[in-house]
């Protein structure tokens, strides 16, 4: 931890991440994952893939998430991934990744650009069919799908059939949370 004096707040504005339960659905803010965007420089895709191996992850193909240790990654666009790492060890994630990727990739810190709400419970398709056009019945664990929820762009990372991370812009975290909670109330 740096020894500065400033106190951080979660995207929902709390001191510590909070979790609410609406019927069978639990919506929990997750703040212990640091993120950086990794975009391959022209012609360097092979180097980027090799570098990713060194941080414990095989870069996934389009629409997928790959779990690894210490880093995981999901695809965000052609030759572009979001790399995830434990916040505790990778608070300055770009500084941590830079030696690995060198000049093969453009790295951009993204940790604070997003809110991550972990939605868990049985029958998640019944919840998400009120929120977005993703066909969860045809999705499987490891899918990383960008979609829209109540006008907000969002990634759905499908961790398990009963657990999905919704990652969306930090500034509208409260609106996203409201949308999820309202849909949970309505769908069950």
């Amino acid at each position: 931890m740096p020894d500065h004096s400033l106190k951080s707040v979660t995207p929902l504005g709390h001191d510590m991440p909070e979790s609410v339960t609406v019927g069978p659905i639990t919506i929990a803010e997750v703040t212990d994952i640091a993120m950086a965007s990794v975009a391959a420089r022209q012609g360097r895709i092979a180097d980027v893939a090799d570098a990713a191996q060194k941080i414990g992850v095989t870069l996934p193909e389009a629409g997928r998430h790959a779990a690894g240790t210490p880093c995981s990654a999901f695809w965000t666009g052609p030759e572009m991934w979001m790399v995830e790492a434990p916040f505790a060890t990778h608070e300055d994630i770009v500084a941590a990744l830079k030696p690995v990727f060198g000049d093969a990739a453009s790295l951009t810190e993204q940790t604070d650009a997003w809110v991550r709400l972990r939605v868990s419970g049985a029958d998640l398709p019944r919840l998400f069919e009120r929120l977005c056009n993703v066909d969860l019945a045809r999705s499987s664990a490891g899918d990383a799908i960008r979609t829209m929820i109540e006008h907000l762009g969002a990634f759905l990372l499908i961790r398990r059939p009963d657990e999905i991370d919704v990652i969306s812009a930090r500034s509208s975290a409260a609106s996203l949370h409201h949308a999820l909670a309202a849909a949970a109330k309505s769908a069950f």
């Binding site: 391959a40 810190e109 993204q110 604070d112 650009a113 997003w114 930090r170």
Partner: peptide
């Protein structure tokens, strides 16, 4: 298409 340029929004990050 062959320019070596990568972009991402960081509006929310800072």
């Amino acid at each position: 298409p062959d320019m070596d340029v990568q972009m991402i929004s960081t509006t929310e990050a800072w």
